[in-house]
Amino acid sequence: MARSLERIKIFFKDLWKWRSNCIMILPGVIWYIVFAYIPIYGLTLAFKSYRANLGIFRSPWVGLENYVYVFRDPAFLESIWRTLFINFGRILFQFPYPIILALLLNELRINRFKKAIQTVLTFPHFLSWVIVASIMINVLGSRGLVNSIIKILGGESINFLGSEKLFVPLLYITENWKSGGWTMIIYLAAIAGIDTEQYESAEIDGATRLQTMWHITLPGIKNTIVVLFILAVGNIMVQGFDQVFNLSNPATARVAEILDMYIYRITFKTAADFSFSTAVSLFRSVINFILLLSADRITKWLGSEGLFS
């Protein structure tokens, strides 16, 4: 008992000592408690038959019945496959892009030019996907800028917006355009932390810029790359809803139905069945969790530091 009291005393003493830091993290903690931890109880809906008049707490338990319906729907399994396909593609085609941008930008020597390029690359991040989708319609539509140029040059109009084949590449291109510059800032910050003496030594030793980039810069930001990679893999099942929702249309609906679009459809576009939607969401979170842990273990196995002990 006395030991416990001593521990509590130390805890509050530490709390007071680090009060400034605690106050700074307090809003984040509150946010997590209110929006991430308390709603976890809502996940019980996955095992209940939700009745609006009874609410979450009093709705009857139905065990795994909702999962029987989930796995009966071929569109559900299709949406999982599409999510994995599109988002593993993101790892391949999107994840390296900001790293390459940061490495290239780091090599620019004229500071004003470097800042201008950085601003141009970062700006699209502040546009919402609704705006980007409107821009895409105007740029890529049959009467849009790109097709007008193609027609002027004597070519045939290309159906960019309604083509199932072009939809996924369009996702990668627009995401790179919109977010590449923003993510690049994280890598630039990591590059700024590399000891400049290493570059000076390399210069004295006669290393080329490519060799410096490969042997000093890239290893210097390796830990940042690993952490962002683990987080990217951990987000595979939840990435890109805003983008897919705004860029898709009935012509591309089949290839655009990732798991989040499926959840949106069964929740808001048809008769709402919140238990069914929650069952699907929970399943998605479980897969995500497994992927996150797998990525962490794989990076550790490859010799890097992971996120979890």
Binding site: S49, E65, Y69, D73, G162, E164, P250, A251, A253, R254, R265, I266, K269, T270, A271, D273, F276
Partner: peptide, 20 residues
């Protein structure tokens, strides 16, 4: 419960059959 699961978005799905 079965009936509640078959409320499809017919406008989108039928249009997709035409455009695919």
């Amino acid at each position: 419960p079965n009936m509640r699961k078959v409320q499809f978005d017919y406008d989108t799905e039928l249009t997709n059959l035409v455009t695919m």
